[in-house]
Design a protein around this nucleic acid. Sequence first.
DNA 1: GCGACAG
DNA 2: ATCTTGTCGC
Length: 239
Amino acid sequence: MMHCSQVKERFNATRASRAQKLLRGMVKLEDQPGEPRIVAGLDAAYTRIRGKSIGIGVAVAIDVDSLKPVSCKWYAAEVCVPYIPGLLAFREMRIMAPPLSILAEEASIDMVIVDGHGIAHPRGFGIASHVGVAFRIPSIGVAKKRLHGELRKIGDRIYLMDGDKPIGVYTNGIYISPGHMVTVERAARIVERLRVRGKLPEPTRVADMVTKRLKRRIPGLGLGECSTEARSTGLLDYI
DNA sequence: GCGACAG
DNA sequence: ATCTTGTCGC
């Protein structure tokens, strides 16, 4: 297993953004047939333990009809890469991929909503696109703050534009952009449908909630450990 | 060089 | 993202 210090040494911002320019060519912005039944939410939180920065990644599966969580997985580990605007995925994929991977084994995930931007990114490859391409699954990015693009009102909605190209939508205080295998229009429609409490859609809202509650129990959680049971997070206690 | 800058 | 008390308002 690769140690955190080695990951830290290997990380190079220039190479990372070069990788994004290469990977953006794999992004598909076309809708998939059928409506998603199970949508996963991905989020991460951080805390400090004995001088080390620990990241906690959570993946929650939400049933679109009932809007209820059907499964939840988490993973905690030391974060090795610093936060650099535009390179968020290189920091968070390490803690969000494990739980999503295990969640996908257990539930049939049709789509995933990630906390961050999709194609509304300087190089068109934000964390939501990164997750979508890596897992070959439709994905949407939902961010609370702008990173790239200019707002422009067209008709009755506000779009995030990259020149003449619509790369996202701004609604109710959040920025919605396609990650992979979905159009701007459908991404906005799905997120709006899932937004029933607060400004975030259920998948991301619940994931964020679980992430913060897990922080209080960090000493009791093993680092580098990934939950493998639906009830291992005591998910029902968080609803 | 200066300003912008997801989580 | 995180560090943090009280406080204004529904």
